[in-house]
């Protein structure tokens, strides 16, 4: 199994574990950790798309011919997209953790079923 395929499987595992935690686990913090797993799985999937076995980093240096560079460099677009995606993921996570703190102070529990059971 090459590195790209292994990473794709890992991203799939991240997403499935994350979905399980987000849907089935009652503890809010564990749910949020699951959501972080989903986000990172999606990021890893995008990174895998730009991987090229034996390729070079997509920076055009003096001495490289344009044709050789086009044939051998990794695809840079997914890397650029993942940078943005990581920022969004971090923001989402920060907001969720802030909300979790407020909800814990209000209800005195991290159990989602208990919190939402109180909701009218």
């Amino acid at each position: 199994m090459d590195l790209q395929m292994a990473s794709l499987f890992a991203s799939g595992a991240f997403i499935i574990i994350g979905l399980f935690a987000a849907v089935f686990i009652d503890n809010l913090i564990k749910k949020i950790i699951g959501i972080a797993f989903i986000e990172e799985g999606a990021n890893l999937f995008l990174i895998c798309l730009g991987y090229k076995a034996g390729g070079v980093v997509p920076i055009f240096l003096p001495g490289m011919s344009a044709d050789w560079f086009a044939a051998n460099s990794a695809y840079p677009l997914p890397q650029a997209l993942v940078l943005t995606s990581i920022v969004i993921g971090a923001s989402t996570l920060a907001v969720m953790l802030a909300l979790a703190m407020v909800l814990y102070r209000k209800h005195g529990t991290l159990s989602v079923s208990e919190m939402m059971g109180d909701e009218k």
């Binding site: 979790a100 919190m115 109180d118």
Partner: peptide
Amino acid sequence: EDNYEIAMKYMILGAIGGP
């Protein structure tokens, strides 16, 4: 009333929908 609970619920679903 209960705006934090709804916000969290929406956030959790959004954090699945977004990825």
